[in-house]
């Protein structure tokens, strides 16, 4: 308990938090571009949400401004809405082509 009350608890370097955020975002980006499975592509967007969350909380702690954490709540909202809609779309697409391959849907490109 004394650890939680002390004012130096969890004094994490801002640079480390930003690098963690950047690395997660970069990995999510690489995954989104290189995977061909629709569901895994959407999982990669969730990974990028995690990166944004870490950056927001880190800066919010730096300035002791709780808006950073409030925005995390809104990110969670967007992530939940995205998961619901995107997964409904995936189910719909899977019913039409019975494959999860993103390359099955390339008519618009050609």
């Amino acid at each position: 308990m004394s650890m939680l009350a002390s004012d130096t608890f969890a004094a994490v370097s801002l640079a480390h938090a930003l690098l963690l955020s950047g690395a997660l975002m970069a990995i999510g980006m690489a995954g989104f571009l290189s995977r061909r499975n629709l569901i895994v592509m959407f999982l990669c967007t969730e990974l990028m949400f995690q990166a944004a969350i870490v950056a927001m909380v880190a800066f919010g702690r730096w300035y002791w401004d709780f808006s950073g954490q409030i925005f995390v709540i809104f990110i969670l909202t967007v992530a939940a809405a995205e998961a619901a809609l995107a997964l409904a779309l995936v189910v719909l697409l899977f019913r039409r082509r019975s494959t999860l391959d993103a390359e099955a849907w390339t008519e618009l490109r050609e």
């Binding site: 969890a10 994490v12 938090a17 969350i53 870490v54 909380v57 702690r61 995390v72």
Partner: peptide
């Protein structure tokens, strides 16, 4: 990591 950043609720 968020706990370490003192964002316990989040």
């Amino acid at each position: 990591a968020l706990v370490m950043l003192e964002a316990f609720f989040m």
